[in-house]
Design a protein around this nucleic acid. Structure first.
Lengths: 336, 336
DNA sequence: TAAATTTACGAAAACGTTTTCGCAAATAAA
DNA sequence: TTTATTTGCGAAAACGTTTTCGTAAATTTA
């Protein structure tokens, strides 16, 4: 069988308590004994059973990351940042994908109250318009940090980007490049970040005395084909826009695809700007003007904040709202 | 405190064994009792402690995915497939990123022998040229399935693509489009899939009576800037190629970047084909000809194979080598 | 030198399950 | 009716740690 603490104890003629303490460098154990124990542990390749330890200590050294999807450069980068911190802290990272489905999100939230994780990092799904499952998580005192798509109804830390400013700048950028009718393409009416971006969009229109046309504020789904059809309808309609501000990358890509199909010239007939973490925006035809979020840093900061909760108990009610800056990079899709 | 099996037992005047059995639908418990127990469990929102259960049963309901990186469309899609299966099986997915670093890979392999996971899915790092850590994992009887980048020195299941054929077809495609001097860009001399692709490359050259120029078989690192400099040197040298076959997406992108900088026209002066899972290959300038792997399916099949190990003990020595087909999609970067 | 303290360790309980063993009561077979 | 079997449940051990409590021996203090 596998070598456990009892095996070490027998081999060294010590009690299991001494072994345990020696391995954890307890002050109660003499240096000589510690050395003996550690040498034997190394020799027998002793691997402590994490579940026995977790059971006893009520600590799992594991965090969960609950996100809508992973095939998305933003979230992939964020996970990268999270995993980076987790490795440093010697923590383990569980991944759960909701696919924008609130039922899955509820399922994860409810199943992860059982001690499997010490804390959770979350970006809520586009469908989520009720927060009972998150409130319940909080009640169970599961440390929770939101990133990017936060839940404002819950008292907790969050890491976001300056979505309002990003939305404002994006829209103003289009206006400055001559756009008069700017469409805002969005995933969901419920998302915190989307709404802030829309507020920025509206503010920019107001500032420049452009009237707000509700028909140009469009919501899309998770279904790519359906989205493209919807875009086809706008772009071939009478009231077609001359500028598009996509709240998320995939809607910009859908627009590119439609323009290719409909032979609409970007940027001559239509200018496009998008929130995006596509590393090859500059290689697109035409290159895509983006507002880029510091995705890796967002993941990293989110994880660091979670560990602040985990490392100090009295931090549980000290919430931080960190807002990182996005960067607008003008490229071909908004050229004059 | 949190409600446990003992609480239920007290509330129902039953023993904890009965509660445990009732919850697990044991035949030893009457239907009436089961109902009573389950109702009470629901009422008190009982959540079984996973670590107590894991400790007792030596099962963690958790698998690990060890991959080089996550900011890579192939691996993101593969994880998507893995997570899909895991959700169905009610398993948990731990993510570990090696960043192509063999030391990290060794660290993960050695730390995950302690029972934390029931099995592992792995795509080995580009640096990995010694397999002792994997052999040790196998010795500890940790079920292990390789995908994409496999370890041929280890007896185990693997899910790959038809890399030889993909490499052959890619190269022949370039030849048919008129290329005479085709460079093969690769990450590492150690990777199983890269080597198969290279074998395909060589076979195609041989078939078409093109001599093999070792200088055109190039290895790159994880460092993007360094890679681009290396590409600059080839593309501005005297013996510059007229075709590039990139074994991985990021090298194709690096080549695109360099061509942009050096003002090299794709496809006129240089044709490019690449293994890639970029969903927007068609939107690049020019659109990129790709050999695309069924990444989601690879992840899914890898997970399914792992669960075959987990569900039947006697399967542990029945290894499967599943090879899925890749698809060559001709686009602008190899147009005549 | 006696008393107090510190050092270094062991015994045993505890964490929350699952499972083995045992055993009455109920039912079926003889 | 007697015996054999099944049904339904409880007591207790077990999983592998950590931690509380206790205590001799060594050391320090008075």
């Amino acid at each position: 069988m596998s070598v456990d603490i009892k095996t070490l104890a027998k081999n060294l003629n010590l009690s299991i308590s001494t072994i345990s303490r020696a391995l954890r460098d307890s002050y109660e154990i003499s240096d000589k004994t510690k050395l003996r124990v550690k040498e034997m542990a190394a020799k027998l390749n002793y691997q402590p059973n994490p579940y026995a330890s977790s059971l006893r200590k009520h600590k799992s050294k594991t965090i969960a990351v609950v996100i809508p999807e992973i095939t998305n450069n933003f979230f992939a980068l964020a996970i990268n940042g999270i995993e980076y911190v987790a490795q440093e802290k010697e923590y383990h990272v569980l991944i759960y994908l909701t696919h924008e489905n609130i039922k899955k999100e509820i399922g994860f939230a409810s199943h992860l109250q059982n001690g499997r994780i010490d804390g959770m990092l979350m970006s809520i799904s586009a469908e989520t318009n009720n927060y009972d499952h998150l409130i319940e998580l909080k009640k169970k005192e599961v440390p929770l940090v939101f990133f990017d798509r936060i839940c404002e109804a819950i008292e907790s830390s969050s890491i976001t980007t300056d979505d309002f400013e990003g939305g404002f700048n994006a829209t103003e950028h289009l206006i400055q490049r001559g756009c008069k009718k700017i469409a805002y393409l969005d995933l969901s009416r419920y998302l915190s970040n989307s709404n802030k971006r829309m507020q920025g969009y509206i503010a920019a229109l107001v500032k420049h005395n452009i009237s707000i046309d509700e028909r140009l504020i469009m919501r899309f789904t998770n279904n790519i084909a359906a989205n493209e059809e919807q875009i086809v309808r706008v772009l071939s309609g009478a009231e077609k826009p001359d500028g598009v501000f996509a709240s998320v990358e995939k809607l910009a890509i859908a627009t590119y695809n439609v323009c290719q199909r409909l032979n609409i010239n970007i940027p001559k007939q239509l200018k496009i700007i998008s929130f995006s973490n596509l590393e090859i925006s500059s290689l697109l035809n035409p290159s895509l003007t983006t507002i880029t979020q510091p995705a890796f840093e967002i993941g990293k900061q989110a994880a660091l904040q979670l560990f602040r909760y985990l490392e100090k108990k009295n931090m549980m009610n000290v919430h931080e709202k960190i807002i990182l800056k996005s960067t607008l990079i003008p490229r071909g899709s908004t050229a004059i």
